[in-house]
């Protein structure tokens, strides 16, 4: 487990280097085209799905607690 965390952190740090290398990606591309909103919409939808799932679990738990 510990080894794994370390590897993962190192992995992350290498990615950091990549991100820095590519410079100001946000200004270059994020607002450069409208299509990024498609991605935002999809991520939002996945979030909504997960939240919906949370609410169903909440409802079932409440029922359990009442008994």
């Amino acid at each position: 487990m510990k080894k794994f965390t370390v590897t993962f952190l190192m992995f992350l740090s290498t990615l950091q280097l990549f991100a820095q290398g590519s410079g100001s990606t946000i200004t270059d591309s994020l607002y450069a085209s409208d299509k990024i909103y498609v991605v935002v919409a999809c991520v939002l939808l996945i979030l909504l799905g997960l939240l919906f799932f949370l609410f169903t679990i909440e409802k079932r738990l409440k029922k359990l607690e009442k008994k």
Binding site: F18, S22, K35, V39
Partner: peptide, 16 residues
């Protein structure tokens, strides 16, 4: 990373 990393330049699909 999915939002911030650079992606290849693609026609039509663009940032999506």
């Amino acid at each position: 990373a999915g939002f911030l990393m650079k992606t290849p330049e693609l026609p039509i699909i663009r940032e999506s």
